[in-house]
Amino acid sequence: MKKLINQADNVVVDALKGMEAAHPDLLKVSYDPKYIVRADAPVKDKVAVVSGGGSGHEPLHGGFVGRGMLDAACPGEVFTSPTPDQMEAATKAVSGGKGVLHIVKNYTGDVLNFETAADLCQAEGIDVEAVVVDDDVAVKDSLYTAGRRGVGTTVLMEKIVGAAAERGKSLKEVADIARKVNAQGRSMGMALTSCTVPSAGKPTFELGADEMEVGIGIHGEPGRERMKVKTAREIVEMMSDAVISDLPYKSGDELIVMVNGMGGTPLIELYILYNEFAQVAKAKGLKISRKLVGNYITSLEMQGFSLTLLKADADMVKLWDDPVLTPGLRWGV
């Protein structure tokens, strides 16, 4: 294993120290328990938005802490859920008296830990609502499994919901918007290579030099199918079909689109992929209102990408355009 780290056991703490050193104007870091809050927290009379999950997906979630997005993020160990004591402390640190929304990606550990945290917070009189993101179309039999995994839609939800909270909406309104984003968002990912969890020291899975895994999860979970690598056009057409037919997205729909790198794919390839998707969208009559192209929800150094589509009405696009000031996303300020 070759990585730019000091010690495998200290990866998360060392990275948190780096975030604190780089962005003191945007955020503050607590180390025991571990959480990141926006610099001006708690913001009075605003719904606070808290998320969290295993580390290794940066900039998600810590890189999205700041004005117009998350009030707090709880980082777990790499690919491991954070624990309820972190979530409880973070929730208390940002609670501004108007309630707190927890954004939870659908993994059994994350869901159970956030539920336990919500119980602990509610026992102390903090109003907490949770919204679970489960947008990964690669999981087919969601009735017979723990359900679809939470992936790319999480990024779009954190932006839109953070803006809604910033505008002063109530906890119920903010939670409703979050549920709507989840209902209208779908994603799928693919990988050309595995990734290596620092504490494990070896790749999570093996993939032949000429193979790719389509439908991969953000922790290297198996996807729908392993096959020979194809051209960018063929891959985008295959993945677009799976995502578009799932909701389904129809001709005339307005979309917010994210072409997201898994951590080890260069931007030049992501733009090739975006161009292919733009062709597909045009042919199907889908209107791309807004887009993100870059690394937003990664899987350490994995080579690959994911495609996320969100059917967005005018209100959602307005919230998307609202100012945001975080290490990972910033515009309008």
Binding site: S81, T83, P84, L112, T116
Partner: peptide, 18 residues
């Protein structure tokens, strides 16, 4: 309970903690 919730992690932390 509180110790398990903080230290076990995964799904079994909150389950045994609960």
């Amino acid at each position: 309970s509180m110790t398990l919730i903080k230290t076990v992690g995964g799904a079994s932390g909150p389950l045994y903690g609960t």
